[in-house]
Nucleic acid binder design. Structure first.
Length: 905
RNA sequence: GGGCGGGUAGCUCAGUUGGUUAGAGCGCUUCGCUUACACCGAAGAAGUCAAGGGUUCGAGUCCCUUCCCGCCCACCA
């Protein structure tokens, strides 16, 4: 766009920049790990930093959750890369069994008007692979657009051959250890999806339902037991009526037979502690085939189990006259019939928790079904231990409690799904029902030798393969160079909403199969909500599309907003106003850079005298050093948001607002002054860009590229740091990170002196504003102070004049304090008195009042500090803290003395 | 029922191991097109840090109680 390396466009053009910059990174191989174990010269002793990406689903929709983890992980990776650590960020996608299959089914129905059953498994899978090719590619491009510096040469997909082999190996090992079993159990059945789902895939929603009260008539007696239920249709599957053993009302009926309404089937009246005498009628109908609680009671009492619903949630033959009816229809009809038969007592509105499928949304039916399970306790115990003993750290730490809480109460994991899209269960059955497994497909039955084998039609839960992700992506079960060098990974960064689904399972499986914790740190970010804190959802219509945000404000603005607006583990409310504010920051960055580049054009190519820095130079340099230390500390504690805020503040309100303004003066002076000013400008901008790069990679890389060109052209000596480090690096993405620097002793006074200047400037500006003086009006001033303060000020008089709008020729520096010239107003800034010729614009009594008020405030501070310092504080608090307070007191006293003089005189 | 998090300026939030006048963005008021930036600059108003108690020389920060809000887990019909 611009051929002149000193001139930039007026605003940052992110659209034009982003793709070009990404290509630059990728083409130059910056995204690949330095110290690759597959390359010659590899040094295995250097510890790498590795993140396995949370693989997005191939369903093809980028959302803010993706933007969040990409931004956060990219920040971590870029930071480490700049620190010189070999980094690997493995990208990939997840086949997402149910979600993808549903999408493809929908597509087929819409485009070809066929169901998957109609075209058959093989054909359906072809369609699904085609879908994956299309949408998996799209999502990867979007991840790129977010700036993700992943190593795309290591792109993985959960259904790849390699990863499928890992899944096979994992299954077989668990099977051989007896940790995987098959059997009929009560599971969560999704009638819409026609598959079993795990406990985690069931969501409970509070919903308005009804509580139905009815009579369980006792056989051969007038008596009945009143029973309440929320699901009357399950009466058809009842095999007992239960009461509490201590319940006087029903004790005499225990052991009798009750008659199932309408069906007339005889079921026993039993006594069980699980019954709550206070709730409902105090009696419970028992349906072991369709209720988890009843299932256990049934098991205790050896009750029959009746399956009264089939896979479509229609009533089975066990339901007699209701057979074939849908579950809700059956409920209605049965209840009507019971009412007609006089068995209904009443019904009332009742709010309860309804289990719904996380995917399909329809009501889940607990059902008896033959499925595959992982015996999870054996895996859970070591996984709990790994967090407890610190092999894995969870950030923020309170999520460790959540983790323990879940892991300690974990139930066996149902891993089979009645789907087609996924890893097929590697079990083969012979006609006699023997099961054979193996790392390769078996030819004959392992038990009877029969060659007539049929593979289990089901596939594994998607999370089974996701659980292997940190090592399956590196080549496991083979001992590949990648696995050896990059495993265990370093950081697992993801949303807290999949702590159980994914993180816990990776820990369990990692420990089980590799003997090592799959990562050192788990960093959990919060969820992104809308500006009012509501969950984003299509039905609410409050979804913010990251692609649109990036189009409007740029990737960097979005990333910075997500990174700086968030605190580990806490949800954040995103609003476009915030993104806009950060777009403005990007523009600030751009324009500061633009100014500095422009300045470099006219700078003499080398200084003649040794460095002589101004107060402002020393100050910004000292602050820059402080910032390095602060940021390092924050990064160590994973407080990336706060670190970003600090850099933002430094850049905008210190470097841009103050130093740049002063630099204009210093540049105007020309000669060595201009050279050293340019040098500071370049160095501080360089440092700032490096520190911002993990947050806003595009604009910083782009600007830094210009800076490098211009600084190199202006003089090889400009840019202090890299003069020492052997010149400018190839690109910002691989430039060394600004590490903390040792203090050299001058920093404190540099910062102190400049604060004084700021104080004086602010005091004058304040009065100018109060008196409605035009900003362009230059006025004179008398500044009076003690000799030492005055000495310092002589150096910086020019700066004060320029920033406070004083005309230098009418500035008087006096060591005679307390004597206000005629026609002037007085103000006090610390130890300094300032007189401005603004009496004409001021009301004398208001002036007096202002000074009196200031004096009163200062005296209040003096009182406060005197009390503090005369109390136990002086002895008990650490010496440096006390000393600091004493200094403050001295300063207040000095100021008060000046003010008294003014008020009196 | 169990567990977890939060309540800080009009709004949205930050506040790192307790250090002594509490910060930002947006919004608001008043000025200003000063040759990097109006996606800007300067000045300003605005908070009893939910309430009460405690520990401490010192608490927004640690402990207890209470009141609100949110989330997670759990088979109360």
């Amino acid at each position: 766009m611009n051929t002149d390396r000193f001139t930039l466009s007026k605003t940052y053009q992110f659209k034009e920049t982003e793709q070009r910059i990404y290509t630059l990174w990728e083409k130059n191989g910056f995204l690949k790990p330095a110290n690759d174990p597959n390359h010659p010269g590899h040094d295995p002793s250097v510890k790498p930093y590795v993140i396995a990406i949370p693989p997005p689903n191939v369903t093809g929709e980028l959302h803010l959750g993706h933007a969040m983890f990409v931004a956060m992980e990219d920040l971590m990776i870029r930071h480490q890369r700049m620190k010189g650590v070999p980094t690997l960020w493995i990208p990939g996608t997840d086949h997402a069994g149910i979600a993808t299959q549903l999408q493809v089914e929908k597509l087929l129905l819409r485009t070809e008007e066929v169901t998957r059953e109609e075209i058959g498994r093989e054909k359906f899978l072809e369609h699904t692979w085609a879908w994956k090719e299309k949408y998996g590619g799209i999502i990867n491009d979007q991840v790129r657009r977010l700036g993700a510096s992943c190593d795309w040469s290591r792109l993985r997909f959960t259904l790849d051959d390699g990863l499928s082999r890992a899944v096979r190996e994992a299954f077989v090992r668990l099977y051989e250890k007896g940790l995987i079993y098959r059997g009929p159990r009560l599971i969560n059945w999704s009638p819409g999806l026609k598959t079993a789902v795990s406990d985690l895939e069931v969501e409970y929603h509070e919903e308005q339902g009804r509580l139905y009260y009815f009579k369980y008539v006792i056989e051969g007696a007038e008596a009945f037991i009143p029973v309440a239920t929320t699901r009357p249709e399950t009466i058809l599957g009842d095999t007992a009526v239960a009461v509490h053993p201590d319940d006087e009302r029903f004790r005499h009926l225990v052991g009798r037979q009750a008659l199932v309404p309408i069906l007339g089937r005889k079921v026993p009246v039993i006594a069980d502690d699980a019954v709550d005498m206070e709730f409902g009628t105090g009696a419970l109908k028992i349906t072991p085939g369709h209720d988890p609680n009843d299932y256990q009671i049934g098991a205790r009492h050896g009750l029959d189990t009746i399956s009264m619903l089939d896979q479509d949630a229609r009533v089975t033959d066990a339901g007699g006259p209701y057979a074939g009816l849908d579950r809700f229809e059956a409920r209605k009809r049965l209840w009507e019939d019971m009412r007609a038969a006089g068995l209904v007592i009443k019904e009332e509105p009742y709010t309860h928790m309804v289990p719904r499928s996380q995917r399909g949304g329809e009501i889940i039916e607990p059902m008896i079904s033959t499925q595959w399970f992982v015996e999870i306790k054996h895996l859970a115990e070591p996984a709990i231990e790994a967090v407890r003993d610190g092999r894995i750290t969870i950030v923020p730490d309170y999520f460790a409690k959540v983790y323990y809480n879940w892991m300690e109460n974990i139930q066996d994991w149902c891993i089979s799904r009645q789907l087609w899209w996924g890893h097929r269960i590697p079990i083969w059955y012979c006609p006699d029902g023997h099961m054979t497994t193996g790392r390769t497909d078996p030819e004959v039955c392992g038990t009877c030798g029969s060659a007539e084998l049929e593979q289990d039609p089901d596939v594994l839960d998607t999370w089974f393969s996701s659980g292997l992700w940190p090592f399956s992506t590196l080549g496991w079960p083979d001992e590949t160079p990648d696995l050896k060098y990059f495993y265990p990974t370093t950081m697992m960064e993801t949303g807290y909403d999949i702590l159980f689904f994914w993180v816990a399972r990776m820990i369990m499986m990692g420990l089980e199969f590799t003997g090592e914790a799959p990562f050192e740190t788990v960093y959990l970010h919060g969820l992104i909500r809308d500006e009012q804190g509501r969950k984003m959802s299509k039905t609410t219509g409050n979804v913010i599309d990251p692609l649109i945000v990036m189009d409007e404000f740029g990737t960097d603005a979005l990333r910075f907003t997500l990174l700086v607006g968030s605190t580990p583990g806490k949800d954040m409310n995103l609003s476009l106003e915030k993104v806009e504010a950060n777009r403005n920051f990007a523009n600030k960055l751009w324009n500061a850079g633009r100014f500095i580049l422009g300045a470099l054009r006219d700078v003499p190519s080398a200084a003649e005298a040794p460095p002589a820095y101004t107060t402002a130079d020393a100050w910004i340099w000292a602050r820059q050093k402080e910032l390095r230390g602060t940021v390092a500390g924050l990064f160590r504690n994973h407080l990336y948001g706060e670190a970003g805020r600090q850099i933002y503040e430094f850049f905008w309100s210190e470097f841009a607002d103050w130093y740049l303004e002063i630099a204009k003066l210093q540049l105007r002076e020309g000669g060595d002054r201009a050279f050293y000013t340019a040098d500071v400008l370049v160095s501080v901008l360089d440092t700032s860009l490096r520190m911002l790069h993990p947050y806003t990679p595009y604009i910083t890389e782009e600007l830094w590229g210009y800076l490098k060109q211009a600084a190199s052209a202006a003089s090889p000596k400009i840019g202090l740091e890299d003069t020492q480090n052997g010149g400018w690096p190839e690109a910002l993405i691989v430039a060394p990170w600004p590490e903390p620097q040792e203090p050299e002793g001058w920093e404190d006074w540099a910062i102190g002196d400049f604060k004084n200047i700021q104080e004086i400037v602010r005091a004058i500006r304040n009065q100018r504003s109060e008196k409605n003086l035009k900003p362009s009006a230059r006025i004179g001033a008398v500044i009076a102070a003690g000799e030492t303060a005055l000495e310092r000020m002589r150096k910086d008089a020019g700066v004060i004049c320029a920033l406070a709008g004083l005309s230098p020729e009418n500035l008087t520096l006096a060591n005679e304090t307390g004597s206000k010239p005629d026609g002037h107003i007085a103000l006090v800034a610390g130890e300094v008195e300032i007189y401005l010729p603004l009496a004409d614009l001021a009301n004398p009594s208001e002036e007096r009042f202002r000074l009196k008020k200031e004096l009163a405030e200062t005296e209040a501070q003096i009182d406060r500090l005197e009390t503090l310092l005369s109390g136990p504080f002086a002895e008990k608090a650490p010496a440096p803290i006390v000393a600091a307070e004493r200094e403050k007191l001295a300063a207040y006293r000095a100021a008060a003395a000046k003010l008294e003089g003014q008020v009196g005189g």
